[in-house]
Amino acid sequence: CHSECLGNCSQPDDPTKCVACRNFYLDGRCVETCPPPYYHFQDWRCVNFSFCQDLHHKCKNSRRQGCHQYVIHNNKCIPECPSGYTMNSSNLLCTPCLGPCPKVCHLLEGEKTIDSVTSAQELRGCTVINGSLIINIRGGNNLAAELEANLGLIEEISGYLKIRRSYALVSLSFFRKLRLIRGETLEIGNYSFYALDNQNLRQLWDWSKHNLTITQGKLFFHYNPKLCLSEIHKMEEVSGTKGRQERNDIALKTNGDQASCENELLKFSYIRTSFDKILLRWEPYWPPDFRDLLGFMLFYKEAPYQNVTEFDGQDACGSNSWTVVDIDPPLRSNDPKSQNHPGWLMRGLKPWTQYAIFVKTLVTFSDERRTYGAKSDIIYVQTDATNPSVPLDPISVSNSSSQIILKWKPPSDPNGNITHYLVFWERQAEDSELFELDYCLKGLKLPSRTWSPPFESEDSQKHNQSEYEDSAGECCSCPKTDSQILKELEESSFRKTFEDYLHNVVFVPRKT
Rank of each mutant, 00 (worst) to 15 (best):
W205I: 03
L252V: 12
F296A: 11
D393W: 15
Q339I: 06
E156A: 14
N142M: 06
R165M: 12
S319L: 06
N340T: 12
E187H: 07
H210K: 13
K209E: 13
K360H: 01
N320I: 10
K112P: 04
N334R: 14
D377V: 03
A251L: 07
L331G: 15
K242P: 11
L108C: 03
L204K: 02
S389A: 15
S401Q: 10
Q306E: 04
T113S: 12
G152M: 02
E156R: 03
S208H: 06
N211C: 08
W286C: 13
L201R: 01
H233V: 07
K234C: 10
N307S: 14
R244V: 14
F358Y: 03
Q354H: 11
S132P: 01
D292P: 06
D326M: 07
A149Y: 06
E246K: 15
R370S: 04
S119D: 12
Y300H: 05
F299T: 02
N190Q: 04
Y270V: 01
D312P: 15
L204D: 00
S192F: 01
G125H: 12
W322C: 02
N263E: 14
H210P: 02
D367Y: 10
L362M: 15
Q306V: 12
I214T: 11
N200Y: 05
V238Y: 04
L161Y: 01
C317M: 04
R164M: 13
Y194G: 08
Q203D: 13
C126W: 00
G125A: 04
L153Y: 10
D367A: 05
K162E: 03
I404Y: 01
N263R: 08
K218A: 06
G140I: 08
L151Y: 01
S171W: 04
I278N: 00
T371E: 03
D206C: 09
L180Q: 08
K409F: 08
K409P: 06
G243P: 02
G313Y: 13
S166Y: 03
I405M: 01
Q354W: 13
G159L: 00
F311M: 09
V325K: 02
H341A: 11
G131Y: 01
H233A: 10
G373L: 11
L123F: 10
Q216L: 12
Q354T: 05
I154H: 00
V325S: 12
K103F: 14
A144Y: 12
I378E: 01
R176I: 14
N320L: 09
N190L: 07
F296E: 02
V308N: 04
R244P: 13
K360L: 15
N248C: 15
L161G: 00
S166T: 11
L298R: 00
V324L: 07
P288E: 11
Q199H: 12
H341I: 05
Q245C: 10
E237D: 08
N307W: 14
T118R: 10
S321R: 11
E302L: 05
S321P: 07
A144V: 10
S119R: 04
Y160C: 12
L169T: 07
A251P: 10
A195N: 13
P288T: 09
G159W: 01
E237F: 15
I378L: 14
K409M: 01
Y223T: 13
E156G: 05
Y223L: 11
L294D: 04
L107S: 07
I154E: 00
S402H: 04
M297L: 14
I404A: 03
R179L: 11
N150C: 04
C317G: 08
G256V: 12
A251V: 13
R347V: 13
D335F: 08
F175K: 00
F221G: 05
V308G: 14
K226A: 08
T215P: 15
G256M: 11
F193T: 02
V238C: 02
F221P: 00
W282V: 04
L169F: 13
A120M: 06
F193L: 11
L279D: 02
D384C: 08
K209H: 09
G110D: 05
S171I: 01
R244D: 10
L172M: 09
L107R: 07
T323V: 15
I134D: 00
D315W: 01
D249P: 10
A120L: 07
Q216G: 15
S319C: 11
E187Y: 03
S230P: 05
A168L: 03
G183S: 03
Q382W: 13
T323I: 14
I135T: 03
S192D: 01
P391N: 01
R244N: 06
P330V: 06
V390G: 02
L212Y: 02
S230W: 03
K350N: 04
E148L: 07
F290T: 05
R347M: 10
I278T: 03
L151N: 00
G313S: 09
R182H: 08
K112N: 04
K407T: 12
C126E: 01
K375V: 04
R247Y: 10
N334S: 10
L349A: 13
C126P: 08
I181S: 00
E155H: 14
L153V: 13
D384H: 13
P288W: 06
A120Q: 05
G318P: 06
R138A: 15
E156K: 07
A251G: 14
I188V: 12
D328E: 14
I114S: 00
E148T: 13
N141I: 05
K209I: 13
L108Q: 10
L153H: 04
R202Q: 01
D377A: 06
F221A: 13
G140L: 10
G189R: 08
L349Y: 00
W344G: 09
Q199A: 07
I327N: 01
T361N: 08
A385L: 03
R347S: 06
T241W: 11
L266F: 07
A145S: 08
L345S: 08
E368Y: 11
L107Q: 13
W352P: 00
L280T: 15
R281K: 06
L331N: 06
R182S: 13
L180H: 12
K301F: 04
F296Q: 10
Y285E: 03
F268P: 03
M346C: 07
I157W: 01
D393K: 15
A120V: 04
F290R: 08
K337R: 08
H106D: 12
L294N: 13
Y167S: 02
M297I: 11
V381A: 08
F193Q: 00
D292I: 06
M297K: 03
Q199S: 04
E368M: 10
L212D: 00
A374Q: 15
T215Y: 06
A149N: 10
E187S: 06
T127N: 12
K209M: 09
V170T: 08
Q339G: 12
T213M: 11
L298A: 05
N399G: 15
N255F: 08
L229V: 15
A149V: 09
N334T: 12
K218C: 01
S389M: 15
V104A: 03
F175Y: 03
L252R: 10
S321Q: 05
I114W: 01
P336I: 07
G348E: 11
Q354P: 07
L293Y: 03
S389H: 13
E237V: 02
P388T: 01
L406G: 00
I134P: 00
S192M: 02
V170Y: 15
L201V: 08
Y194K: 07
T273W: 09
P342N: 12
T185K: 14
S338G: 04
Y223A: 05
S166C: 12
Y194L: 08
L180K: 07
Y194Q: 08
R347Y: 10
V381F: 02
L108Y: 08
